[in-house]
Nucleic acid binder design. Structure first.
Length: 385
DNA sequence: ATGTCC
C-alpha cells in the first residue's frame, strides 16, 4: 500500500492546499478527475481538499470531494444544491414483498404530489412559492427512490440502535432541490471563478438562498418517502439524512461538499448501483481528518455519453436493463436514462467501502440489497420521438 | 442536474 496522505509543497510562491486522497492505488480514478482535483486545490484561498474513492470528473470540478476554503465557490456545488441520500425504515415484512407489484405502486411517484405543498413548505419554514409543484418528485439523472432489504448486519450494536435487523425493509431516496437549486445557482452565475468573499451582499444572499434549497431538498426526500410508503400502505421512519452537495461553515472556513456525504451524523448511506449492494455506514475514527465527509456512493466509472457506445439499445437489451441480476425491478421507461444509469456506469461500491474502511473513515453497519428502483415512467423526450 | 424541449 502506498502512502495514505500526500502532502505537496508548491515550488511557486503561491502555496497550494493540501490534497488528501482517501483511496488506495487500486481505486478506479480517472486522470481527468485527478487534474480537476489539482485545479480546485489551486483556487484562491482553498485550505484543504479531501478526495474519496468515488471521485470522478464533474462539470466545474471533481465529484466525490470536500473542499475547505475562505471564499465561497457556488460553482463547486452546482445547481443541485442540497442533493443527498435519505434512508428510511419501512414497516413491511420481507416475505410480503413482490417486486413487480411494488414497481407498479411506485408509479404514483412520477406525477405531482396531490397534497397541499404550499402548506407543507410553510410548516417547514420555507416560502410557499418555492416550487410547490415539484415538491415530492424525484427528478432525473442519477436520482431514484429504491426499496431495499437488509441482507446482512455488520455491527449488531449499532444496527439494533437504529432498529435494523436482517430482513428489515428500507427506502433509499436520492434527490435534490429540483428547480429551486437551479434558480439559486443561476442567480450567482456571474464572476464565478473568483469566489465570493464572505460578508458581501452577494455572498450573504447566496448563503441564505442556498440554505433554503438545502432544507427544500431534505423535505423533498422526506415527501418522496412518504408518498412511496403511502403507496405501500406502510409506516416509515427516517434513520439517516445525509446531503452531499452543499456548503457549510466549518472551523471558521467554508466547507464545500461535492458528492461527499455529510458525515458528522451517526449513520450515513453509501449507495451502490441498482445492481449492487448499498451500505449503511458509521463514521470512523479518522473521519474528522477527512473534513467530516465520506464517499456518497459508488461514483461514476464512465460518463453518460460514453455509455451509449458501451451498451446496445435493442428492445431486448432495454428489457434486460429493467431487471437486476438478483431479480430486482427497475422502473425506468426512458431508454436513454436506462443506459446512462446502467450498473456498468458505476464503480464497484464494495471497493469504495473497502477503501473507506482501510483509511478508518467508516465502518459498515448493514448491507442492503435493492429490490425495486424507481426512476422514471416516461420522458417527454420519448413521447415526442 | 433542470416545472428542460416541442
Amino acid at each position: 500500500m502506498g502512502t495514505l496522505i500526500k502532502n505537496r509543497t508548491s515550488l511557486s510562491n503561491v502555496s497550494d492546499a493540501t490534497i488528501q486522497r482517501h483511496y488506495s492505488t487500486s481505486a478506479w480514478i480517472e486522470g481527468k478527475a485527478e487534474e480537476q482535483l489539482q485545479h480546485v486545490s489551486q483556487l484562491n484561498r482553498v485550505q484543504k481538499v479531501s478526495a474519496f474513492p468515488d471521485l470522478h470528473p464533474g462539470k466545474y470540478g471533481p465529484v466525490g470531494c470536500a473542499i475547505l476554503s475562505d471564499l465561497l465557490y457556488p460553482q463547486l456545488i452546482g445547481n443541485d444544491i442540497g442533493c443527498g441520500m435519505s434512508l428510511f425504515i419501512l414497516d413491511l415484512p420481507a416475505r410480503k414483498i413482490k417486486p413487480e407489484k411494488i414497481a407498479k405502486k411506485f408509479r404514483v411517484l412520477e406525477g405531482k404530489w396531490l397534497g397541499n405543498a404550499c402548506a407543507l413548505l410553510e410548516e417547514n419554514s420555507l416560502p410557499p412559492q418555492d416550487f410547490p409543484s415539484s415538491l415530492g418528485t424525484i427528478g432525473g439523472g442519477n436520482h431514484f427512490c429504491e426499496l431495499q432489504t437488509v441482507v446482512q448486519i455488520n455491527n449488531s450494536e449499532l444496527a439494533k440502535k437504529a432498529d435494523l435487523s436482517k430482513g428489515t425493509s428500507c427506502l433509499l431516496v436520492h434527490s435534490g432541490s429540483r428547480g429551486l437549486g437551479m434558480q439559486v445557482f443561476s442567480s450567482v452565475l456571474n464572476e464565478l471563478n473568483a469566489g465570493l468573499s464572505p460578508l458581501t451582499e452577494q455572498a450573504e444572499k447566496y448563503i441564505a438562498s442556498h440554505n433554503r434549497a438545502v432544507q427544500w431538498a431534505s423535505l423533498n426526500r422526506y415527501l418522496i418517502a412518504r408518498r412511496a410508503a403511502e403507496s405501500l400502505r406502510t409506516d416509515f421512519k427516517l434513520i439517516s439524512d445525509s446531503p452531499h452537495n452543499l456548503i457549510e461553515e466549518y472551523q471558521g472556513h467554508y466547507l464545500h461538499r461535492k458528492g461527499a456525504a455529510k458525515a458528522d451524523i451517526p449513520l450515513i448511506p453509501l449507495a451502490g448501483s441498482r445492481d449492487s449492494m448499498s451500505y449503511l455506514l458509521s463514521p470512523g475514527e479518522k473521519v474528522h481528518d477527512a473534513l467530516s465527509s465520506l464517499a456518497h456512493g459508488a461514483g461514476r466509472k464512465y460518463d453518460r455519453s460514453s455509455m451509449h457506445g458501451r451498451i446496445r439499445n435493442k428492445k431486448s437489451d432495454q428489457i434486460k436493463l429493467q431487471r437486476t441480476s438478483f431479480g430486482g425491478h427497475v422502473v425506468c421507461e426512458d431508454k436513454h436514462l436506462l443506459i446512462e444509469e446502467a450498473p456498468e456506469a458505476y464503480k464497484n461500491a464494495n471497493h469504495v467501502l473497502r477503501d473507506l474502511e482501510l483509511f478508518k473513515l467508516a465502518t459498515s453497519v448493514a448491507t442492503l440489497q435493492p429490490l425495486v428502483t424507481f426512476k422514471k415512467v416516461i420522458s417527454r423526450k420519448e413521447e415526442y420521438r
